[in-house]
């Protein structure tokens, strides 16, 4: 369904162009959960933003292809891109503090996609939103509907983001380190939720993280990135149990011991 072929991303906002992602390849099937791991600055977010079509077309030169159901998102018209965005491709960001609009009510923000892509009336949207807030396991969705982001905890906000992303039944959910800013218990809950949603709705998830243990729990396949390149890719268990690349080995060796014990 989603195929990224030889994606290169180059920044043009400085005097010398700077390439941050080299020859990125990715294949994502319907209903699949694929992970991207790598240290900070390895180009995970850049790749994700490029796939979501959020990198400025002018400031960043991109080579390669991002094929979504056969349509190249890099070269299609803006209107075509906008149709895919929100409808088929959604994203949850890393920082729950800034990913919700501080002056808009939760319900309004979750319903925005519906307002943009469907002809539903405000009442129908409200019902759908409340149903969705329930689906992401938020307690008392009716009252959350009328709240502002600052009244919610980080974990709740991330759930709201997931609700907003999923309300139009997208085919792909890109989750860029959705749990990094959360504490461990909340993190585990969100992971569980994502897994459940994936089972129920068949939404494919591209899960970005620098936390290998999380990726191992959630994903079926994984890409390891290092300095803008994909250095290793394959089934999760294979990559983690029999890493081929030196970098992957070092990455695995860096998992805190407690968590390693958990696997054994």
């Amino acid at each position: 369904m989603l195929d990224v072929i030889d994606l290169n991303i180059e920044f043009h906002d400085h005097i010398t162009p700077e390439t941050v992602v080299y020859d990125f390849d990715l294949h994502l099937d319907e209903g699949e959960i694929v992970g991207i791991v790598g240290e900070s600055g390895s180009g995970k977010s850049m790749s994700a933003l490029a796939i979501a079509g959020l990198l400025s077309r002018k400031k960043m030169k991109k080579r390669g292809q991002i094929l979504f159901d056969g349509v190249d998102l890099l070269t299609c018209s803006r209107d075509t891109l906008r149709k895919y965005q929100g409808n088929d491709i959604c994203m949850v960001f890393q920082e729950p503090m800034t990913s919700l609009n501080p002056v808009k009510r939760i319900g309004w923000q979750v319903g925005e996609s519906l307002r943009l892509h469907t002809e539903l009336s405000e009442d129908e949207i409200r019902n759908k939103v409340i149903k969705m807030l329930e689906d992401v396991e938020l307690q008392d969705p009716e009252s959350i509907y009328d709240k502002y982001p600052h009244e919610l905890s980080g974990g709740m906000r991330q759930r709201v983001m997931i609700a907003a992303a999923l309300i139009c039944n997208p085919k792909v959910l890109i989750a860029d380190e959705p749990t990094t800013a959360l504490d461990v218990t909340v993190q585990a809950q969100i992971i569980k939720l994502l897994k459940k949603i994936n089972k129920k709705t068949g939404t494919a998830i591209l899960f970005i993280s620098h936390d290998l243990s999380v990726v191992r729990k959630l994903c079926s396949r994984v890409l390891v990135m290092y300095k803008g390149r994909v250095v290793e890719t394959g089934e999760v268990n294979e990559v983690f149990d029999f890493p081929k690349e030196e970098y992957t080995k070092r990455l695995i060796a860096a998992i805190p011991r407690m968590e390693k014990l958990e696997y054994e």
Partner: peptide
């Protein structure tokens, strides 16, 4: 460039909106 604006962009909201 805040995330919530990116998010709105990704939802397919028009520039004016």
């Amino acid at each position: 460039n805040l995330d919530y604006v990116q998010s709105a962009r990704l939802m397919g909201a028009s520039y004016l909106r």
